[in-house]
Write a protein that binds this DNA or RNA. Structure first.
Lengths: 199, 199
DNA sequence: GCGAAAATTGTGGAAATCCGCAATGCGCCG
DNA sequence: CGGCGCATTGCGGATTTCCACAATTTTCGC
């Protein structure tokens, strides 16, 4: 799944002209004649953005959007519609849609939005990768190591930690060193920054 | 300026009925017949949320919204409109409007949204107060103290910091202690967490 | 039951931190 | 000029951290 715009619309002509427009601007595309077709191919690892028609035979655009959100799809979604109304647009945007565009649209503006969406997706993926590696490191920690980490992050001295966990200071030192190692960090300050906001 | 809903609409009847509805639900209100009237009274310290009509004589709702954004107003804005179109709604929400509701609206839903907006505003104010006190403490720091702080946050040992700043270790220790004191923290870890994300 | 991983503890020394006490030099403001 | 805030430094001791070397106990799955 290389990064590309996923075009979902039951009107062949629109899909084709949209694909032509985007590809002429250097944006790779994949077309799907229905929401179901897209869902069948979709994987969490899919990259890019989605251009989604509102009204389609079978599952509607908003319905597909809801399903994708539930399944953890983080691709930016640009709704395209010829018959959208205000409540629909408001609902879509509040649920996190990237944009909501009425047909007929301005070609240049749409291409710009698609490019922005692709950029956003790329950034989100980088952030997600970081988050994944972080939680991977976190889950490699032992229960004890995690407990020690909590207290370290609370700014407590090893002596106090030993006291609270009812273990010797030496043990705390060992756990501390091990968890620093696993988390890829050299000081408590780095650890605090690594987990800033998280946890 | 006690927390309240600020109603801005050039239609007296709508303002009055809206005020009646909200106050009957325990939400204090203030009414303004025009954007200009509101602007004349507005202060950055204003609390609450804004119910803003789109089409008004003089400055329009979106125009007022833009001005308020520029001036740093953080009150949630709920747009109310009888003649809104999709692009207008999309633009408003993308600029950060809290909601965009078409007239006629459902009374209960609107009240709910207003209550949510007021809650959001209260939370934002708490966060802003924290941020203010933080930046106040930060600006009470000496140049040297700030420099030392940066290096402490970089996880460096006093010895290294002394080296980089070309001063003695003892001096670093003094600055470190002073800045911890000013920032109201007891350990480097607490400092790192306090500034998590910031700076 | 056996073996690996995890948890635990000790000893001891080098290095770093934390702090009170004391003092000097500099620049600015009234 | 005198006081004040800031930066600077030294000394010395109590406390803590960091680690290498070494070892015992617990836990848990096959």
């Amino acid at each position: 799944m290389t990064p590309c715009a996923h075009l979902i619309d039951d009107d062949d002509a629109i899909r084709d002209s949209l694909a032509w427009l985007l590809e002429s601007c250097g944006v790779a595309c994949r077309s799907y004649p229905s929401a179901e077709d897209f869902l069948a191919e979709w994987l969490p690892s899919c990259t890019g953005c989605i251009l989604l028609d509102i009204r389609m035979g079978g599952m509607s655009g908003p319905e597909l959007f809801d399903v994708l959100c539930e399944r953890g799809c983080r691709m930016p979604v640009i709704f395209l519609t010829g018959h959208g109304d205000v409540p629909m647009a408001v609902a879509a945007l509040k649920k996190g849609a990237f944009d909501f565009v009425e047909k007929p649209f301005n070609d240049n503006e749409l291409v710009d939005r698609v490019v922005e969406a692709l950029k956003l997706d790329a950034n989100q993926r980088l952030a997600a990768a970081d988050a994944d590696s972080l939680s991977a490191r976190l889950s490699s920690l032992t229960t004890r190591e995690r407990e020690v980490m909590e207290l370290v992050l609370a700014g407590k001295l090893n002596k106090l930690i030993a006291d609270e966990l009812q273990i010797s200071m030496r043990t705390v030192e060992v756990h501390r060193a091990n968890l620093f190692d696993k988390m890829g960090v050299r000081t408590a300050v780095e650890l605090a920054q690594l987990l800033a906001g998280k946890r």
